[in-house]
């Protein structure tokens, strides 16, 4: 039996996950990290990516997470993100539209000289693509 730790995933809008977990992995600005029980106290900022939670040794759940941060404390691991969504909550159509919109914006910005907003379009594109990837991965697993 692997050691478990308390995991709490919060967004400004709701409590996304609150319970025990064996392992959790997130995408930080420096790369992907995984946390097991007994991790050294740590704080890092999150990018956009996949949130993988193993509630016990045999199950694994994947979700989408947006920008935020992770705080590893001795008693609990907190993940605070602006948005978290389980695959079934992801609106694929909306993500696809957002992806196209972001791509169009990027095209325009590349030709124009307004470089300031390019970063945001890139993040928006990342968000949309990650959402779609998680959605498609989970539907494959279903089959």
């Amino acid at each position: 039996m692997a050691k478990t730790f308390n995991l709490m995933v919060l967004t400004p809008e709701r409590e996304f996950y609150n319970g025990e977990a064996v392992y959790v992995s997130v995408q930080t600005i420096a790369g992907s990290i995984g946390v097991l029980a007994g991790h050294v106290p740590m704080v890092s900022a999150l990018g956009v990516g996949e949130l993988i939670i193993h509630p016990d040794e045999n199950t694994s759940r994947m979700a989408f997470h947006s920008e935020g941060f992770i705080e590893v404390r001795p008693e609990c691991v907190y993940i605070l993100s602006q948005a978290c969504e389980w695959p079934e909550e992801i609106d694929e159509k909306r993500a696809l539209e957002a992806e196209q919109r972001a791509q169009e914006r990027l095209e325009q910005e590349r030709t124009g000289d307004d470089l300031g907003t390019m970063g945001h379009s890139k993040v928006a594109l990342m968000r949309a693509m990650t959402r779609r990837r998680i959605k498609s991965l989970s539907s494959q697993n279903m089959k």
Binding site: P12, A30, P41, A45, G68, P74
Partner: peptide, 29 residues
């Protein structure tokens, strides 16, 4: 909770950079 030995990844400043806009978004929301 002892806050003196915390690992900041990749660096305190980088975390701060990313965090302040988020704090503000959280506050305004």
């Amino acid at each position: 909770y002892d806050r003196t030995h915390i690992l900041y990844d990749p660096s305190p400043t980088a975390v701060l950079d990313a965090l302040i806009p988020q704090l503000l978004i959280g506050y305004v929301y």
